[in-house]
Design a protein around this nucleic acid. Structure first.
Lengths: 179, 179, 179, 179
DNA sequence: ATTTAACCGAGACGGTACGTCCCGTCTTTAC
DNA sequence: GTAAAGACGGGACGTACCGTCTCGGTTAAAT
C-alpha cells in the first residue's frame, strides 16, 4: 500500500481547547457535564468535531487523565520520612480538587480506567514500602488502612481529607512493624 | 368544613410494585436507570403516576433507602467478638449487592442522602467501640482504618470485599488498644 | 380490557395548522420541503409533535391527499358533452396547482400512494366512457391517449396543460368510435 | 517558460470509474444517492476529487446523460414501418431501465436538464413524422398521444410500458391521417 | 346510596439532548 | 497540477427522554 495523502495528524489546537474546558467542567459540575453538547457550548468547538475525536464522554475523561501529570518524588531512603512525605503529597492532590473530581467521575465510568487510576494513586506509597523490604501482604494491608480513609473522605463524605489521621495511621503502622 | 370524599390516601400497592422494580433496575443498570420512563416500561405503571409520587429520580432512591432494612444486632458485651461480628455483617451486606449499588448511586446523587447513608453504614461499628468506652477520636480512627478499605474495594476496585484483611485490621486495633 | 384513561384522540387543532402549512410548502418549494424540521420552522409546532403524528414526510403527503377534496360531477348522459366537461375539469385541477404539485411529489414517494392518486385522477374519465358502454380495453386506450399528454405537460415539461390538444384528442376518439 | 509539472489534463480513468458507479447508484437507489459522500464510499475515489469535478449532484447527473448514447436509426422511408420501429426502440429503452431512472431523477432536478432530455426522447418520433411531411401541429398531437402514455406508465404507474397499446395508437394515427 | 375527592391511565405537547450522517470548505501531504 | 486524507463548522435527521398538562375512568371513603 502506497500510503499517500495527508497523514492522520491529530487535531490542531482543538485538543488543547477542549481538554482544558473539560477539566473546568469536571471540577465545576461533575462528570455528568462531560457531554459533547456541553463541551461545544463552552468551547465553541463544533459538536461534530468533538464527536469525531472523543466519541463518548469516557474518551474525554481518559484523555484528561492521560494528560494529568503524575508527579514523581525521589525517596530519601528513610522509611518513616518517605511515608509521611508521600501521604502529604497525596493529601495535597486530593485537596487540590482534580484528583478527587476524577475519582467521583470514575465511579460511574469504565472499570478499566477506574482501576488503572486508583492503582496509580496507590502506587507511590506501595513503592516506598516495598523499597523498604516490607512483605507484599503486609504492605497491601498498610496501604489500605492508611490511604482508603482518605479516598472515602473525598468520595463519600465531602470533607477535607483527614491529614492528621492519616499520619497517625502511618505511625501506628511503623511502631507495629518495628515490633 | 364538611371534609367529604376519599381521603388523601397514599397509593394502593403501586408503591410496592414500583419500588421493587426500582431496586431491580438499580442493581441491574445503575442509578441512571431510575427514570420515570424506565420505571413505567418495566412496571406498566403509568408515567403520570410515577411523576405524581416521585417527582425526581432522587426521590425514588430516597424511598428505596428508607424501605431498606438496616439490621440490628444486639451486642454480646465482648468487644473483640462484637467487632468481628459487626465487620462480618458489613461484608455480607456489601457482598450481597444492594448496599454496594446504593453507594455507587449515591456518589452521583444528593450529598445529604449520601452522608446519611454512609454514616448509617459506619454507625454500628462505631457504636460497638463507644459502648466499650473507646475515646471518640480513637474510635473514629479505628473505624476509618477498618471499614474504609472495604468501601474502596466495592466502589473503586470492583473486587469482593477483603474480609480477611478487615479482620486483621480489627486484631491490630485490639492489640494496640490493649497496650 | 378495561380501556381506561383518556381516549386516543388525534391532535387538537395541530393537525389543521400543520397540514395547511404543509400544502403551502408543497406548492412553494416542492415535495422536498415536507420535512419535520421545515414544518416546525414554518408552523411553530414542535418537531416532536410532528414526528409523533407524521413519522415520515410521506405520511404528511398522504394526509394532505386524504384531505384534498376530489370533486364529483354528475353526468348529463351525453357522451361527447360529458367527456369534454371532464377533461376541462381535469385541466382546471392541473392548472390550479395542488394536483400538479402532488404528482411531482409522488414521483419520489411511496408507490402505493402514487398509484392510488393517479388512478383517482383517471377514474372520472374512465367512468364516463364505461357508462356509455365502451369496452374496457378501448376505454383504457382512449384515456391513455387523452389524459397522459396532460400529465406529461405538468410533470416533465412545465408548461400549461394543452387543453385544446386534449379536446382534439377527445374528438378524434369520438369520430373513431362512431365509425 | 519551462512548463513543468503534470499537464492540466482531466482525470485519468477517474471519470469512468465514478460515472459508471453513479449510474449503478442511480438505478439502484434513485437520484438521492448521487452524493459526493456516497460516490466516494462506492468507488474509493476521494471526496475531494469528486467535489472538484462535479461540484453538485446535478453535475453528476448531467455528465451521466451526456455520456449515455442516444441511438440513431436510419429511416427506411416508409412512414408506418419507421414509426413502429421508432416506438419499439423507445419501449426498449424504457424497459431497460436507465432511461426510466433518468426520468424519475429529472422530475426532482433542474428544469433545463429535464426539458432537454424529454425533447431528446421525443425527437426521433417527431423527426419521422416531419420527414413524411406531416404538418407541425398534427405531428405534435400524434407524438403526445402515442408517447405520453408510455412515459406515464414508467413514471407514475410502475408498469411495463404498454407496447401493444402504443402500436395501436400508431395505427389509429395512420388511418386517421390517410383519410 | 350518593356524593366527592383522590387515584390512575393514556396521551398530547413543547423542549432538549443524543448520536449519526452528510455537506462544503479548507489544509496538508504525496505523487 | 492532480489526487488523497482528513480536520472543521454547520446543519438535518430520527430517536429518546423529560416535565407539564388535560382529559376520562375508577375507587373508596364520608355523608
Amino acid at each position: 500500500m502506497t500510503r499517500t495523502g495527508r497523514p492522520a495528524g491529530p487535531a490542531s489546537d482543538t485538543t488543547a481547547t477542549v481538554l482544558t474546558a473539560a477539566l473546568d467542567l469536571l471540577l465545576a459540575e461533575g462528570a455528568g457535564a462531560l457531554t459533547a453538547q456541553r463541551l461545544h457550548q463552552v468551547t465553541g468547538v463544533s459538536r461534530s468535531t468533538i464527536y469525531r475525536h472523543w466519541p463518548t464522554p469516557n474518551d474525554v475523561l481518559a484523555a484528561l487523565i492521560d494528560v494529568a501529570p503524575s508527579p514523581r518524588r525521589q525517596p530519601s531512603g528513610d522509611l518513616a520520612q518517605d511515608l509521611h512525605a508521600e501521604i502529604d503529597a497525596l493529601c495535597d492532590r486530593l485537596r487540590d480538587k482534580p484528583v478527587a473530581a476524577f475519582l467521583r467521575a470514575l465511579v460511574a465510568a469504565d472499570a478499566g480506567l477506574r482501576h488503572r487510576y486508583v492503582e496509580d494513586l496507590l502506587a507511590p506509597v506501595q513503592a516506598v514500602l516495598r523499597d523498604a523490604g516490607t512483605p507484599r501482604a503486609a504492605a497491601e494491608d498498610a496501604v489500605a488502612a492508611i490511604v482508603s480513609p482518605l479516598l472515602v473522605d473525598a468520595l463519600l463524605l465531602d470533607r477535607p481529607t483527614a491529614r492528621a489521621r492519616a499520619h497517625r495511621a502511618v505511625d501506628l503502622y511503623l511502631t507495629e512493624a518495628a515490633r
